[in-house]
Amino acid sequence: MPPRRRDRPDEGDDRYYEEEYDEERYAGDDGDEGAPVQGRPVAGRRPRRDSVVVQAEPQRPRRRPLTATSAGRAGLRHIADLTAREPEAVTLVQPVENGWVVDVEVVEDHRIPSSSDIIALYEAQMDEEGNLLSYRRTRRYRRGAGDLGGGYGR
């Protein structure tokens, strides 16, 4: 069992501690190397390194990079949130330098019959962690005429 340490608030520095010496643990040790510092530190001197408790600063955990599937889902969610419209499908997920580009089809105008619906294609650019950097509508067209080029322009 290691020596117990008690914080000395009167020292004003968390690096200084008063320790209780465990005689059984350090039996046969002449006190030179490896033994903890006992009692108060000597004025102007720091306790030996093995008796200092160092707490690392909390670090923000780094998220793992997105996969194509998770990037597609993130892009779909961003576009749906921003346009407040019903997304139809993810049509492109492409890795780019420092992130992803995702294209999402969105129903912009429901019509009867549904084959007359107006569909828009939105492009979302995201960083490696899935944060949205920019988005834009790249195209509008009538459902069923998407690949033929006819329709409502950009």
Rank of each mutant, 00 (worst) to 15 (best):
residue 2 P to G: 11
residue 4 R to K: 15
residue 5 R to N: 09
residue 6 R to K: 09
residue 6 R to I: 04
residue 7 D to L: 10
residue 8 R to P: 08
residue 9 P to S: 01
residue 11 E to C: 08
residue 11 E to V: 09
residue 12 G to C: 00
residue 12 G to I: 00
residue 12 G to W: 01
residue 12 G to T: 03
residue 13 D to C: 02
residue 15 R to Y: 03
residue 17 Y to D: 04
residue 18 E to G: 01
residue 18 E to W: 07
residue 18 E to Q: 09
residue 18 E to M: 07
residue 19 E to K: 15
residue 20 E to F: 06
residue 21 Y to I: 15
residue 22 D to M: 01
residue 22 D to Q: 07
residue 23 E to V: 08
residue 23 E to Y: 02
residue 24 E to Y: 10
residue 24 E to Q: 13
residue 24 E to N: 12
residue 26 Y to V: 08
residue 30 D to A: 01
residue 31 G to Q: 06
residue 32 D to T: 08
residue 32 D to M: 04
residue 33 E to I: 13
residue 36 P to Y: 09
residue 37 V to L: 12
residue 38 Q to F: 02
residue 38 Q to W: 06
residue 40 R to S: 06
residue 41 P to H: 11
residue 42 V to F: 08
residue 44 G to W: 03
residue 44 G to Q: 03
residue 46 R to Y: 10
residue 47 P to L: 01
residue 48 R to Q: 14
residue 48 R to E: 14
residue 49 R to F: 07
residue 49 R to A: 11
residue 49 R to P: 03
residue 49 R to H: 09
residue 49 R to T: 13
residue 50 D to H: 11
residue 52 V to E: 09
residue 52 V to R: 06
residue 53 V to L: 08
residue 53 V to G: 07
residue 54 V to E: 08
residue 54 V to L: 03
residue 55 Q to G: 02
residue 57 E to A: 08
residue 58 P to V: 14
residue 61 P to N: 06
residue 61 P to W: 02
residue 62 R to C: 00
residue 62 R to K: 10
residue 62 R to G: 08
residue 65 P to K: 07
residue 65 P to N: 08
residue 67 T to I: 02
residue 68 A to S: 11
residue 68 A to Q: 12
residue 69 T to F: 12
residue 71 A to E: 10
residue 74 A to W: 10
residue 75 G to L: 05
residue 76 L to G: 01
residue 77 R to Q: 13
residue 78 H to Q: 08
residue 79 I to A: 01
residue 79 I to R: 04
residue 80 A to W: 01
residue 81 D to H: 01
residue 84 A to P: 10
residue 85 R to Y: 00
residue 85 R to W: 00
residue 85 R to K: 03
residue 91 T to G: 02
residue 92 L to W: 10
residue 95 P to S: 04
residue 96 V to E: 04
residue 99 G to D: 05
residue 100 W to Y: 03
residue 100 W to D: 04
residue 101 V to P: 05
residue 104 V to C: 01
residue 105 E to G: 05
residue 106 V to D: 05
residue 107 V to L: 03
residue 107 V to D: 02
residue 107 V to R: 11
residue 108 E to L: 10
residue 109 D to N: 15
residue 110 H to K: 14
residue 112 I to D: 14
residue 114 S to H: 06
residue 114 S to D: 09
residue 116 S to R: 14
residue 116 S to Y: 12
residue 119 I to D: 05
residue 121 L to G: 12
residue 122 Y to V: 02
residue 123 E to I: 13
residue 123 E to N: 11
residue 124 A to K: 12
residue 125 Q to F: 03
residue 128 E to H: 06
residue 129 E to S: 14
residue 129 E to F: 07
residue 130 G to I: 10
residue 130 G to D: 11
residue 130 G to P: 07
residue 131 N to L: 13
residue 132 L to N: 02
residue 133 L to G: 13
residue 134 S to M: 04
residue 134 S to G: 04
residue 138 T to P: 02
residue 139 R to V: 03
residue 139 R to S: 01
residue 140 R to W: 01
residue 142 R to L: 04
residue 142 R to V: 04
residue 142 R to C: 01
residue 144 G to S: 06
residue 146 G to E: 05
residue 147 D to Y: 07
residue 148 L to G: 12
residue 149 G to W: 13
residue 149 G to F: 09
residue 150 G to L: 14
residue 150 G to P: 08
residue 151 G to S: 00
residue 153 G to S: 09
residue 153 G to V: 09
residue 154 R to T: 15
residue 154 R to V: 14
